[in-house]
Design a protein around this nucleic acid. Structure first.
Lengths: 141, 141
DNA sequence: GTAGAATCTAGAGTGCAATCTAGGTCAAAC
DNA sequence: GTTTGACCTAGATTGCACTCTAGATTCTAC
């Protein structure tokens, strides 16, 4: 038997996805893969390219704030085959909404922070104190 | 001595800021306030409006991802009075950069997620399967 | 065939940011 | 004056998502 060239070790997948080997084992325990990861005769995990692609999407979902529990629900839906596409769609739409809300919240905070930055720049440049916090009695950071 | 009408209890501040009373005590232990919060004769915390305003800014900074440790550094700078405005500015500029990066990352993820949503909508509407994950052999979520 | 790197399992530990518990003390309304 | 609700401290616990440990096994290169 020849070593299957499409067979990826856990280290290969770690390099390809940026996840650590510990995280990959953790993902498997948490049932986040789309299939049971097969093993070599010696018991080592044998991934393939589709696993990597799924993990890259998982990275996007995780980075954008999807909790592990939701990711697991999505993985389970995909695992259980065709027929539940409306549920998958609902889950993704919900997440898209969450991400848009998060961006809106960050944008609102950003405006406030940028206002402070502008006030401090002015203060540092020419000594006015509007909008920056002085010690007592009434701080205004 | 008459009860100072400007004196706010921990419960008042909790209501005004959305933070819990536990969180407010935690913030104090972590030295996130701009001053030592004074106490009544009986030992209860007596906040004022400036504390509330500071906490509202803290909320913005925390919501936008600033870690407690950084918030503490900022609070310490403000507490130590005038003279370190360039440092405060640098800290805020750094955070502004971090927030912009976070928004950019989320926006990139959002595009991918939205692409999946569009693919699933099409699939659910008229049965094509491009871009959605089928069970085997090569999933494409 | 053997040295060294990579992998295995089960379970413990980490870091952050709260949040809660227990056992009291204080204060406002009746 | 007493009940009731808010508040106090110190420390334990929670939840999430990893991350690491220990000790054994497997794989690769020489």
């Amino acid at each position: 038997m020849s070593r299957d060239a499409d067979r990826l070790s856990i280290g290969d997948v770690a390099r390809a996805t940026g996840l650590g080997v510990h995280a990959l084992r953790f993902f498997e325990r948490e049932e986040l893969f789309l299939r049971p990861i097969p093993r070599t005769a010696g018991g080592q995990r044998a991934y393939d390219q589709a696993d990597v692609e799924w993990l890259l999407l998982c990275n996007r979902l995780r980075e954008s704030g999807m909790p592990i529990a939701t990711l697991r629900r999505f993985a389970h839906l995909v695992r259980s085959g065709p027929g539940n596409e409306p549920e998958r769609l609902a889950l993704l739409e919900e997440h898209e909404r969450a991400v848009r809300d998060r961006i809106a919240g960050l944008t609102a905070s950003l405006e406030i922070i940028h206002g402070k930055v502008v006030a401090y720049r002015r203060h540092v440049r020419d000594g006015t104190a509007a909008g920056v916090w002085s010690p007592t009695p009434s701080p205004s950071p």
